[in-house]
Amino acid sequence: MYNRRTFIQASAAASTASVLAASLGAWPAGALAAASSRIDFYKVVFDREHPAAVAFGQAAGNCGLSVQAISRDVTALWYDDFYHRWRQGPAAIAGMTPARVAYCLQVLAQDVGMRLIFRAEHVPAADGRLAHRLAGPRSVLDRARLLERSADWPSGVARLVRDCPADFSAKSTLALNSTSATGGAFRQPLVSWVIAPPAGA
């Protein structure tokens, strides 16, 4: 569970503080999905070894979502937590993690009827900037262009995730190149993702 101590530990592990600067107000309220259509997340996962993922996790926590840190390996989180929760029925999750963590959870969630609804790769380029490759509901991608201009893109992604509708029908893709540098905060691609039960499940 997310608590203050979790984030203190996670933040201490981060090598840069700049990505932690909250600029949540930069996201137009009018662009947000109606609260009633939002997914009810059971947990939001972030990898504490990646500063951008830590920033994402903090922003998600600030959005009121229940946040869980991992360190690369998702075994314990699934085995001790998600497995038991999902035995009671599907429960949506989201996160910013290395790609293989996302893939593991996607596969495990399939067993309880859930599907990947949103996925965004955040890939560092040679010039230190970021490429974002997104796939998901059109309504989410319509707002994602804001990622191009924001230094605090992890917080922007947290907002996109928070407002992601349970809409599997209108999928779209989008490729963006950030105008802001990563500051060398990470070399490895990260993935943001939303896994949820199909509507009506």
Partner: peptide, 18 residues
Amino acid sequence: NLQVFSIVEPEANDNVPL
């Protein structure tokens, strides 16, 4: 366990892409 997925990440082995 699922540890192998945290080991075989691209930065650990440049033969393994995403």
